[in-house]
């Protein structure tokens, strides 16, 4: 936790913008540069900054450990789930066209968005978990 008023004020102002930028990179990944991985790191960085400035306890209340653990597995499940949906619908694994059979190109974009959301969830929560654990939750 930082004692500096300047750091805490500026950091508090930056925090929502970093989150929004992370979401932008996430949602815009198939149009501009970026994607799930980069977005995940950005979102994790926003919460790490929050923890550095306002203390671990407040961030833990904002984003409890069980939620981060859940998001970590949900991301991978979302990715694999999209793949298995293709099998269930009688097509190939990870065949995005099953998401919208009448509109394959939109299905492709939707599939990529879902898959990238899975990557983003996992990456953000894994990096957050790593920093939290190394930072010593146990002690």
């Amino acid at each position: 936790m930082s004692d500096s008023v300047v750091l805490r004020t500026i950091g508090g102002m930056l925090f929502p913008y970093i989150l929004v930028y992370g979401l932008y990179v996430q949602m815009h990944g198939e149009i501009g540069p970026g994607g799930g991985f980069q977005a995940g790191v950005l979102v994790a960085a926003a919460f790490i900054l929050h923890a550095l400035l306002f203390g671990k306890e407040l961030t833990d209340r904002l984003l409890p450990t069980w939620l981060v653990d859940l998001a970590m597995s949900l991301g991978v499940l979302l990715y694999i789930g999209v793949g298995i949906l293709g099998l269930v619908k009688g097509r190939y694994f990870l065949d995005y066209s099953v998401l919208d059979p009448t509109h394959p190109a939109h299905a492709e974009a939707l599939g990529m968005t879902l898959v990238e959301a899975g990557v983003g969830l996992t990456v953000a929560s894994v990096i957050l978990t790593m920093v939290r654990k190394v930072n010593g939750e146990s002690s």
Partner: peptide, 10 residues
């Protein structure tokens, strides 16, 4: 998809 990198990766 406009971004070729994402198209290849995803």
């Amino acid at each position: 998809v406009p971004n070729a990198v994402t198209a290849v990766l995803a």
